[in-house]
């Protein structure tokens, strides 16, 4: 991963800034983040609720809620094309085609009163107007089988409410992959599911990624999921990326205090039962309390100069491929 976009990047964000018009005025939710994803690789974007990870995903897809959500700065390059300035018509042909997205709660993303066959076929027709109806149906059935939904044609007539949560997520994955995207954005795809079903879904995404060679941006709050399924990881806190590296680097040598605290506060299977966890004090600052400098320093418990919360911080490469927001209080 490099700080400046290179020509081989599938996706490159540079200094992306996005936010919302609210009743209390303009609020930034993503505050100048940069990251890059190569074809066939998977990047985990980790953070707690409100850190801006979903807003990042929606900005890439240009799906921020209208009329209040806007990208206000930076660039989003998909295969070298700047998505931020692309006309709507061209975007529409990319979305669900070369790049697609799966969401946390498939029940809200699937149409409740249209059969899943209908919805899957539509996704295919939108991007392939030439194919015959039979050819389309054959592809849909093949994809359903690939994501582990047995039952063939009968399934096409079912409605989302007739399926379990895991099955609905499989339908979403099938829909997202029908047009063989080169970029898949998965926003908390397994958060609503049981651990056993979570493992099935993540393995499925990993298999399909290998098969199709697509790049995956996996958004999650679970460091375990990242450790098991991603090549690279970016840790977000209060609208910024505080650390990014390969998963091997990040888990072996976390350098930012937030990353370290997140890892330490997780109940581990090897840990001793009923011992106190090294918890992070306080809570994630709300959007209106964001300072211009380090937003984690006040919670880090480390001695810090208030000045570090007041001045903008640089992101520095402290070893090849390992980038950290340079707050002297949080960096170790």
């Amino acid at each position: 991963m490099s700080q400046s976009p290179s020509s081989t990047d599938l996706l490159a964000l540079r200094d992306l800034r996005a936010g919302f018009d609210t009743e209390e005025g303009w609020r930034l939710a993503v505050d100048g983040i940069s990251l890059a994803l190569q074809p066939g690789r998977s990047l985990g974007l980790v953070g707690e609720s409100g850190c801006g990870k979903s807003v990042t995903a929606l900005s890439i897809m240009r799906l921020l809620p209208q009329p209040h959500g806007h990208v206000v700065g930076g660039s989003i390059a998909f295969e070298g094309q700047d998505l931020a300035t692309l006309p709507q018509a061209e975007l529409a042909s990319l979305r669900g085609g070369a790049m697609s997205m799966i969401f946390q709660e498939p029940m809200t993303a699937l149409h409740p009163v249209r059969s899943i066959g209908d919805q899957l076929l539509e996704a295919l027709r939108l991007h392939d107007r030439q194919g015959s109806a039979q050819a389309h149906e054959a592809r849909v059935l093949e994809m359903l089988q690939r994501v582990g939904i047995a039952g063939g044609r009968d399934r096409l007539r079912q409605y989302p409410h007739q399926l379990s949560g895991g099955m609905r997520q499989r339908v979403m994955i099938a829909m997202a992959l029908l047009n063989r995207p080169r970029l898949l954005i998965a926003d908390e795809p397994t958060t609503a599911l049981d651990v056993t079903v979570q493992a099935q879904i993540l393995e499925l995404i990993a298999d399909l990624q290998r098969e199709m060679g697509m790049g995956v941006l996996l958004i999650t709050h679970d460091l375990g999921v990242v450790a098991q399924y991603c090549d690279e990881v970016a840790v977000m806190y209060a609208g910024r990326i505080v650390e990014r590296a390969s998963v091997q680097q990040l888990f072996a040598k976390p350098r930012h205090a937030y990353t370290r605290a997140l890892l330490a506060s997780r109940p581990r299977l090897e840990g001793k039962p009923k011992t106190l966890l090294p918890a992070i004090a306080g809570q994630v600052p709300s959007l209106r309390d964001w300072v211009s400098g380090c937003r984690f320093a006040p919670r880090s418990g480390l001695a810090h100069e208030p000045a570090w919360t007041q001045q903008p911080l640089a992101v520095v490469e402290i070893e090849p491929g390992h980038w950290v927001e340079h707050c002297p209080a949080c960096l170790s």
Partner: peptide, 25 residues
């Protein structure tokens, strides 16, 4: 064993092929 196996451990060194539970709850 299946429940234990499904937990994603926060350590990339512990990546392993999983014995996945088939089917839904």
């Amino acid at each position: 064993k299946a429940l234990l196996d499904a937990i994603p451990e926060a350590d990339p060194a512990l990546r392993r092929p999983r014995r996945l539970l088939q089917g839904d709850v």
